[in-house]
Lab assay of single mutants.
Amino acid sequence: GCWSIEHVEQYLGTDELPKNDLITYLQKNADAAFLRHWKLTGTNKSIRKNRNCSQLIAAYKDFCEHGT
């Protein structure tokens, strides 16, 4: 299931919640338009490089609020 937004804000980028895991989750569960909008298409590695934690948190919040 979903992590809470508080959990993501607190732990994203740590061993508790690697950016990797959040990106994988969104790529698996969000639709193509969402991924394009948040620039989460492409390889996990390129996304990790190009999107910082606050951008990923914003995307995750949007996903939780509007889910697909």
Rank of each mutant, 00 (worst) to 15 (best):
I23V: 11
L17G: 01
W3F: 06
E16N: 15
W38R: 03
Q55D: 10
K39G: 09
G13Y: 01
A32Y: 10
T24D: 15
E6V: 09
D31W: 02
L40Q: 00
K49L: 07
L35W: 02
Y25C: 07
E65C: 08
R36L: 09
I5V: 10
D62K: 09
A58M: 11
T43W: 08
W3L: 06
L17Q: 02
D15Y: 09
E6W: 05
D62V: 06
Q10K: 14
R51D: 08
E65I: 10
S46K: 15
G13K: 01
G67L: 15
W3A: 02
L35E: 01
H37N: 11
C53R: 09
W38F: 04
N44E: 08
S4I: 03
D21L: 15
T14M: 04
N52K: 11
K39I: 03
H7T: 11
Y11G: 03
T43Y: 07
K45M: 08
E9Y: 06
C2Q: 14
T68N: 09
S46R: 15
K28R: 12
L35N: 03
T41P: 03
T41Y: 11
K39S: 09
T68M: 15
T14V: 02
A58G: 07
L56H: 01
H37A: 14
V8M: 04
E9P: 00
E16Q: 15
A33D: 13
L40N: 00
C53I: 09
N52A: 08
A33E: 14
H66W: 12
A58D: 10
L22V: 14
A58I: 04
A33H: 13
K45C: 07
C53K: 09
L22M: 12
A30E: 01
L40S: 01
K39M: 06
S54I: 11
H7P: 01
K28D: 08
T41F: 10
I23D: 02
V8Q: 00
A59Q: 00
R36T: 12
T68R: 15
F63I: 03
Y25H: 10
E9K: 15
Q55H: 14
T43Q: 09
G42T: 05
K61G: 04
N44T: 15
D15F: 13
A58F: 03
S54D: 12
D21T: 15
N29T: 12
E9N: 12
H66M: 13
L12Y: 00
I57Y: 09
N52T: 11
S4F: 02
F34L: 05
L26W: 00
A30K: 00
N52Q: 07
E6F: 06
V8H: 01
N29M: 08
D62E: 11
F63G: 01
L12G: 02
G13M: 02
D15H: 14
K45Y: 06
A32H: 14
A33W: 10
R51K: 14
N52Y: 02
S4W: 02
T24M: 11
Y11P: 00
N20W: 08
G67W: 14
E16W: 09
Q10G: 06
Y25A: 03
G42C: 05
L56W: 01
I57M: 15
K61P: 00
I23H: 01
I5A: 08
Q10D: 09
G13H: 02
G1Q: 14
Q55T: 12
Y25L: 05
L56A: 01
C64E: 05
H37T: 15
T68A: 13
A58H: 07
R51Q: 09
L17D: 01
L22C: 04
C64T: 10
E65Y: 10
Y11I: 06
D31G: 11
R36F: 10
V8A: 03
A32S: 13
K45Q: 08
G13E: 03
N29L: 03
K19Q: 08
E65V: 11
N44D: 08
T43E: 14
L22F: 07
K45S: 10
N50L: 07
H66P: 12
T14S: 12
G42S: 09
I5H: 04
R36N: 09
L12T: 04
T14D: 02
F34G: 00
E6D: 04
N20F: 08
S54E: 11
E16V: 14
G1L: 11
K45F: 03
L17I: 03
L22K: 00
L40V: 04
C2E: 13
Y11V: 08
R51L: 12
K61W: 03
Q27N: 03
D62A: 13
Y11F: 11
E6S: 09
R48C: 10
C2F: 15
S46I: 06
H7Q: 14
F34E: 01
N29V: 09
A33N: 14
A32I: 13
I5Y: 13
K61V: 08
D21F: 08
Y60T: 01
K39H: 09
T24E: 13
T24W: 07
P18C: 14
L22G: 00
F63P: 01
C64D: 03
D31I: 01
A30L: 00
K19V: 07
L17R: 01
T41M: 11
H7M: 11
W38A: 03
K49F: 04
E6A: 13
T68S: 11
L12A: 05
S46D: 12
D15V: 14
L22P: 00
I47N: 05
L22D: 02
K19I: 07
L17K: 01
A33Q: 12
I57L: 15
D21M: 15
L35I: 04
W38N: 06
T14R: 08
T43K: 10
F34R: 02
Y60P: 01
I57S: 07
D31F: 00
S54Q: 12
L12N: 00
L26D: 00
C64R: 11
E16R: 15
W3N: 02
L40T: 00
I23E: 03
K61F: 03
V8K: 01
T43D: 12
L22H: 01
L56M: 04
L35V: 04
V8C: 05
E6M: 09
T24Y: 08
G67E: 14
G67R: 15
A59T: 05
K49H: 15
I57E: 04
F63Y: 13
Y11N: 14
H66F: 10
T14W: 02
Y60A: 00
N20T: 14
I5N: 05
I57Q: 09
Y11Q: 10
T43C: 06
S54H: 11
T43N: 14
Q55C: 07
D31V: 03
D15E: 12
W3V: 02
R36I: 07
W3K: 04
Q27R: 13
S46H: 08
T43L: 08
C53A: 07
Y25E: 03
Y11S: 09
A33Y: 06
D31H: 12
K19A: 08
G67S: 14
N50F: 06
Y60D: 00
A59R: 00
W3Q: 02
S54W: 07
N52P: 09
A33R: 13
W3I: 03
G42M: 05
L12M: 04
L35Q: 06
Y11T: 13
A30V: 02
D21V: 15
I47T: 10
L12V: 06
N44S: 13
Q55V: 11
K19T: 06
I5F: 15
D21R: 15
A58W: 04
A30Q: 00
H7D: 04
Q10N: 12
E65M: 14
G67Q: 15
R48K: 14
T43G: 09
A33T: 13
L56D: 00
F34I: 03
A30Y: 00
K28M: 09
F63S: 01
A33V: 13
R51S: 10
C2I: 12
K39P: 00
E16P: 05
I5Q: 07
A32P: 11
G42K: 07
K61L: 03
K19G: 03
G13A: 04
E16D: 13
D31N: 10
D21K: 15
C64G: 05
K61A: 08
K19E: 07
C53L: 08
R48I: 09
L22T: 01
F34K: 02
R51Y: 05
D21E: 14
G1R: 11
N29Q: 09
H7L: 06
W3S: 02
K49C: 06
D31P: 10
C64A: 12
R48D: 07
R36H: 07
A58L: 12
S46M: 09
W38M: 02
A30H: 02
K19L: 08
H66S: 14
K19F: 08
H66Q: 12
I47Y: 04
E65G: 14
R36D: 11
N50C: 05
Q10T: 14
H37P: 02
I47V: 14
T24S: 11
Q27G: 04
I57C: 12
E16S: 14
H37V: 09
A58K: 12
H66R: 14
K45T: 10
A59E: 00
W3G: 04
I57W: 04
N20Y: 11
N50H: 15
K19S: 05
N50Q: 12
V8N: 02
W38S: 03
K19Y: 07
T14Y: 04
K45W: 06
Q10Y: 06
N20A: 15
K61D: 02
R48S: 09
W3H: 04
Y25S: 02
E9M: 13
N20K: 15
I23Q: 01
C2T: 15
D31Q: 09
A58P: 03
V8L: 10
Y25R: 02
L12P: 00
A58R: 11
K28H: 08
L35H: 03
S54F: 08
L35Y: 02
K19H: 07
H66N: 15
G13W: 01
